[in-house]
Design a protein around this nucleic acid. Structure first.
Lengths: 338, 338
DNA sequence: CTGTTAGCGCGTTCAA
DNA sequence: TTGAACGCGCTAACAG
């Protein structure tokens, strides 16, 4: 790989001039500009990022730490974040914490070592010492979707209360009284917020306040299946189930089938926080409130770059929208086919 | 952030000694070793990656270029790749080409600039000049899932012919004769291989060789929907449809519903290349051949690190397995519920 | 506007 | 085993 020295030599100018042309800092004469540019093109010169970073103490790399890129919510978020970052000249280092604090912490070390310019964080748990150290070093950070106590950073997140409100309205409209709720860990802000909003709103929407209908998993499919089964094993039979995120809803379906069989399960309506592309093909189709992951990713990157470049960044709550897939009225849908 | 200089000063040793202890190159006395380590721990010292990279001309960063991280196949692959890379001490820069050659090329520039140690590549199209230049500079590269002409690198990929064989066997077992095939672009090796294997095997498995049943999309849902509709609009009615990748199968379902309605669509069996977690909840359930994306990602990273460290790396084809979800025999399943 | 020079933080060489 | 010095490639400060 050729260096800027090679370019300068070939263009017949000094190293400084070549640098000025290539990074466009101060003005240069049209002639040297042309000479340097053709020389660079001929050599296929590509600036050495690490060297530039060392000198400028900025890497133009962002760190993105999510819990699991396999969760469609995060893969859509990552896609949007990465696309927005590239548009603004930043690359993205990806990290999957797998909902594991230790692993998350290890990634923070790698990010710190790579000297990322900023951090997009969907926190796994409390603020670890290493994260505290990074914050103390004034590394710009924005939070995605989840907040965490003691971390004062702009938050780009779903409007959980509003989304749950849409769910409650829909449940009431559909005439459901016996509704099961499968939540996520209350140690995660999204889990706590969604559960709190649901519990608080149940009564006003004519939904049973029997806590036998309520349980929580780990925001993954397996944990949700177990939670769904626990609910059914308490001897209650819901007419509808509310899953608190995408993987949870998948787990709910598994749990319903496992305990009730496909036939009986198909008489229970399911509504989900997070919309998945296949919900319309389930039977009955699954209604959802759509969580705009792309918007969160995009806004997060913009906010982070604002912070990096010394501007202010304001938190934002992204409103959710109902995707109503209930085609028929319940009285007929809930009767077995005869 | 503290530098190695700070560590040396605090430990009361020279900069060289501190460096030797921290990077463990040559031997050091137990005393200075201890002093340096405690000093580093006290300061929370984290080596400056770019500086280290500049000096050692290795970044310990891998570039991962996929077509779309939102495709579950790639998000699973990315998850496994990234996890394997971390285990071996490498970070991963993520790039989404969005099936766009220009964007892919731009990412190659960023990777080159960041001086990644190696490249995991799922190519979008032909070898661009920039990719050729990177290869000429002897940057280690491995190919994931897709090969490309003129690029001689280890390939970690699905065994397309074997997978299609499983599909053909299943179609024959189920007694399907009128089978629609919705493929992907033949300009992509996976699209070409799957289509070729299917067309070559049709006759021997008792499947109609009428090409009205065959069309191709773009490996995304929308393109596949259009292809499915084109097939139906030719006036043929398949009893089964084979979708050549995950998003394609989703598009197939949309196409069937749009032209035939949910009721008639539910009498058509669908089989998919790539297994998605929701296939069992479709009606009828979707059978698939499972593409082990995690294995491809893991093996790709191992192979790439082998190359980086000067060892040989051999290509591998990953065998697929059938996930048969056909529960009932076709004669009863295809009769409308009465 | 341009050439020269210093130094970013680190690993490694050379002498001791 | 250790300290001193050099240079990786680049940008920025300075002098002209």
């Amino acid at each position: 790989m050729s260096t800027i020295k090679d370019v300068a030599r070939r263009a017949g100018v000094s190293l400084g001039t070549a640098s000025r042309v290539l990074s466009g800092s101060t003005s240069t004469s049209p002639e040297s500009r042309a000479k340097v540019q053709t020389a660079a093109a001929e050599l296929g010169y590509i600036a050495h990022g690490p060297a530039r970073s060392l000198r400028r103490s900025r890497t133009e790399v962002l760190g993105l730490l999510v819990s699991d890129i396999r969760n469609p919510f995060f893969s859509e978020l990552a896609h949007a974040a990465e696309s927005e970052a590239m548009k603004r000249g930043y690359a993205v280092l990806l990290a999957n914490a797998d909902e594991d604090e230790v692993q998350a912490d290890e990634y923070l070390r790698i990010f710190a070592s790579q000297r990322v310019d900023g951090l997009l964080l969907s926190p796994q748990g409390p603020v670890t010492p290493r994260l505290a150290a990074l914050l103390a070093s004034r590394l710009p950070v924005v939070l995605l979707n989840r907040s965490v106590e003691g971390l004062d950073a702009p938050l780009y997140a779903t409007d959980n209360a509003q989304g749950v409100g849409l769910v409650l309205d829909w449940l009431e409209r559909r005439g459901h009284r016996d509704v099961a709720f499968v939540g996520g860990p209350v140690t995660i802000s999204t889990g706590a917020e969604r559960q709190a909003a649901y519990l608080a709103g149940r009564e006003a929407h004519g939904i049973s306040t029997d806590d036998a209908f309520v349980d929580a998993g780990d925001f993954q499919a397996e944990g949700a299946t177990a939670a769904m089964i626990r609910i059914l094993d308490r001897g209650v039979l819901p007419t509808a189930v509310f899953g608190a995120n995408g993987p949870t809803t998948l787990g709910v379906l598994h749990g319903l089938r496992e305990r009730l069989g496909a036939e009986a399960a198909s008489r229970i309506e399911v509504i989900s926080f997070d919309d998945l592309e296949w919900f319309e093909f389930a039977s009955p189709p699954i209604t959802s409130v759509r969580n705009d992951a792309a918007a969160i990713g995009r806004l997060g990157v913009r906010g982070l770059i604002d912070l990096i470049e010394g501007r202010e960044a304001a938190s934002a709550r992204i409103a959710m929208s109902l995707v109503d897939r209930s085609l028929v009225d319940r009285s007929s849908a809930s009767r077995p086919v005869s």
